[in-house]
């Protein structure tokens, strides 16, 4: 019993990180119809930027804040201006292809320009465990969960309580109607890209201590973010959270009780089942086919 509890807690912590990446992914889709296949690399790049900041002598918290700013510029503003803006009016597919190219480009740039090695990354949380009901729960897992929860709740509060947040939601639900209401759609979309960048930095901060910073770390996080988003329901923000946590917990349980070799397969089996049985996702609403 303690074993299972332990698996669930650490799985939820891992899932919370997937959920953060998935959340950014979903927000981008809702606000601008952008499918970002480079989402995994959007986590990898901040991990390295934080490492660079720290090697320049900055403490972790300062490196994190500095990286948030850099990521907002690089993965938020520049990504939107250079890649998304020229392509978005041509439909979903050209942007999918471009973000695939971007994913390869960023990954290989890091490999060729810096290093192919894996680098250790300091954990923002104390090491060690404490015991509850026979389960050894690590402080890192609890810290990750709390941090992720604060970010998600903060984001929810921003989206629901502030004027800007509500305007962003209006854009996400119906861009044309939002425009008619006098909302500055372009600005709201830009905010979404900035939020996505910050979520990626947070995901990087939380995931890298366990995964290590490596040029191809996005290969594992990226697909899980997509799968989490779709499992939960692509057009639902809460769906990304459910999908992420579901994947994290099931991965742990399968890895322990079934076979560690197929741990990586959990997300996609869950995804394939969802797509066949309920393509709109667990929490999603079906989109009517347009004539």
């Amino acid at each position: 019993m303690g074993e299972l509890l332990q698996l669930i807690v650490s799985g939820t912590a891992a899932g919370a990180i997937y959920a953060l990446a998935a959340l950014g992914f979903t927000l981008l889709w809702q606000a601008s119809g952008t499918i970002n296949f480079a989402q995994g690399e959007f986590v990898m790049v901040p991990a390295f930027i934080m490492l660079f900041c720290m090697s320049a002598g900055a403490p972790l918290w300062l490196a994190f804040l500095a990286t948030c700013v850099i990521a907002m510029l690089l993965l938020g503003v520049l990504f939107k201006r250079i890649v998304v803006d020229p392509l978005i009016r041509h439909g979903v597919i050209p942007l999918v292809i471009a973000s695939l190219g971007l994913s390869i480009g960023l990954k290989q740039l890091m490999r060729a320009g810096y290093s192919a090695q894996a680098f250790p990354f300091p954990s923002p949380f104390p090491s060690g465990h404490f015991a509850i009901a026979g389960a050894a729960i690590s402080y890192a897992d609890v810290g990750t969960l709390l941090f992720a929860a604060i970010i998600v709740l903060g984001l929810q509060a921003f989206l629901e309580r502030t004027v800007t947040g509500r305007a962003m939601q209006a854009v996400a639900q119906n861009t044309d109607a939002a425009r008619v209401l006098g909302i500055d759609v372009r600005r709201m979309v830009l905010y979404t890209f900035l939020i996505n960048a910050v979520l990626a930095v947070v995901a990087a901060l939380l995931v890298t201590p366990a995964y290590l910073a490596k040029f191809d770390m996005g290969d594992s996080i990226g697909p899980k973010a997509f799968f989490a988003a779709i499992i939960g329901g692509f057009n639902q923000t809460r769906g990304a959270l459910l999908g992420g946590v579901l994947i994290g917990v099931l991965e742990n349980v399968v890895g322990f009780y079934v076979s560690p070799a197929y741990k990586e397969g959990v997300a996609l089996i869950l995804f394939l089942v969802v797509i066949l049985v309920r393509p709109e996702g667990l929490l999603g609403k079906a989109e009517e086919r347009k004539v």
Binding site: V83, I97, G101, L102, G105, K107, R111, A112, A116
Partner: peptide, 17 residues
């Protein structure tokens, strides 16, 4: 070496644009 793939990736982005 690995620069080829890096350039290839960014070239695809440029191509799409």
């Amino acid at each position: 070496q690995n620069w080829y793939l890096a350039i290839f990736g960014f070239a695809v982005v440029a191509l799409m644009i």
